[in-house]
């Protein structure tokens, strides 16, 4: 029950900010897809950058766990392999 209450409070705060920055509006959503309104493009990286700093700090302090999707790990792995392959090809004399 406590978990649900936290969810509700977090949602209300997040929803408030989404609306105040107008990023939930149709015009902003479609504007972003049509590359004619950058509001969302400004909002999202701001959240990600701030969130990233805090979450990594919590991770280093042992206060948080990352939730990485299995597919992301796999894709990152194969991506790195491809990059590594390219690199070793390029570094051949």
């Amino acid at each position: 029950m406590k978990e649900q209450l936290y969810g509700l409070i977090t949602g209300i705060l997040f929803g408030f900010l989404l609306q105040r920055a107008q990023v939930v509006r149709y015009d902003k959503q479609l504007g972003a897809l049509r590359l004619c309104d950058m509001t969302i493009v400004k909002f999202m990286p701001s959240t990600i950058l701030v969130g990233m700093l805090g979450v990594y700090l919590l991770l280093d302090l042992g206060l948080a766990k990352l939730s990485i999707k299995a597919t992301v790990r796999k894709n990152m792995g194969s991506g790195l392999n491809i990059q590594q392959g390219r690199f070793s090809l390029q570094s051949q004399p």
Binding site: A21, V23, T39, K42, S46, T47
Partner: peptide, 9 residues
């Protein structure tokens, strides 16, 4: 959007 985005973070 920068402010609201950062607060969301």
């Amino acid at each position: 959007p920068y402010l609201a985005g950062a607060l969301s973070g």
